[in-house]
Nucleic acid binder design. Structure first.
Lengths: 151, 151
DNA sequence: GAGATTTCCTATGTATTCGGTAGGGAAGTA
DNA sequence: TACTTCCCTACCGAATACATAGGAAATCTC
């Protein structure tokens, strides 16, 4: 289960926009601040615009800004805008799967996994992350030192 | 975040082995029962053998069996054996990431996400799935009808 | 030991995705 | 007009995903 570069970049760009509330921010400025290839980032910002997450303005005083308050955009919104469904199995979304025999209960397991990922990514807004204050039910998970070690 | 075909196939194969406790099971039999390309499955079973999850026996009475009791093998064990780390961001594991500016709290978010995925996949054994009785904290997630709908 | 069976190993192949680049057109501003 | 910035399309190399093929090595039965 990997978070793609696109998704990571998209969230970081969105966080930049969430932090700067006055006036638009240029793609180039975001690219430089977050060390993201700028042409690649342009495509990502475009996806977010199509997804209704950011608004853009061309010209010399142009750039990008969030289309909604940062509090109303979840990390899941951003990831979905650039990568499609949050969780898939072999490229298909869990409800479309069919298992037989001893694997029958595998489907509810994938469903539970997806529900859990959703709970996290839909429950955290850009404002939460940008402010450095994650919701308690998320922050608690990250405070466990064991969560930081690679087994 | 996608579960690869390898991982899905591997878990299903492992579940077949968990269900059949008497004697080994041939790759061909598993492939047929679970509709998995049989040569592809052979490679997957081989990875699991190298990972110490299954034992193999050649010859006419040969096949594969679990190397440990099904209760002592988690789904996470299987996924790791065939796909490496459970969760990665841009191909690197979260603790190796470095973020700056408003993205600083993104790292604990990915950590929390990973911790949650671990909680599920490490907390469920092959015996749990094969018996159709998921642990309560997982089953509860799958019982919510909302978890089954695609947004 | 002969022969059948099954795992094990290596090589090959193809399609897709991933991450990134390039160039220029459209729109807005001064 | 000149400049800036987003927008669009195309392309590209490498890696990955998902297999398939062919045989060598081990094991069992007879």
């Amino acid at each position: 289960m990997r978070i793609s570069a696109r998704a990571d970049y998209a969230v970081r760009a969105a966080l930049m926009l969430a932090a700067k509330q006055d006036g638009p921010l240029k793609a180039e400025a975001i690219a430089e601040a977050q060390d993201i290839p700028h042409k690649f980032l342009e495509g990502i910002l475009n996806d977010m615009r199509r997804g209704g997450l950011v608004a853009s303005q061309r010209g010399v005083r142009g750039g990008y800004r969030l289309a909604r308050p940062a509090r109303d955009i979840s990390v899941a919104d951003v990831v979905r805008a650039v990568d499609g469904p949050l969780v898939s199995v072999r490229g298909v979304r869990p409800p479309e799967l069919a298992y037989s025999g001893p694997a029958e209960s595998l489907l509810p397991l994938w469903i539970a996994l997806r529900a859990n990922v959703r709970r996290i990514l839909e429950g955290v807004s850009l404002a939460d992350v940008a402010s450095g204050h994650l919701p308690d039910f998320v922050g608690a998970l990250a405070e466990d030192p064991a969560a930081w070690s690679n087994p």
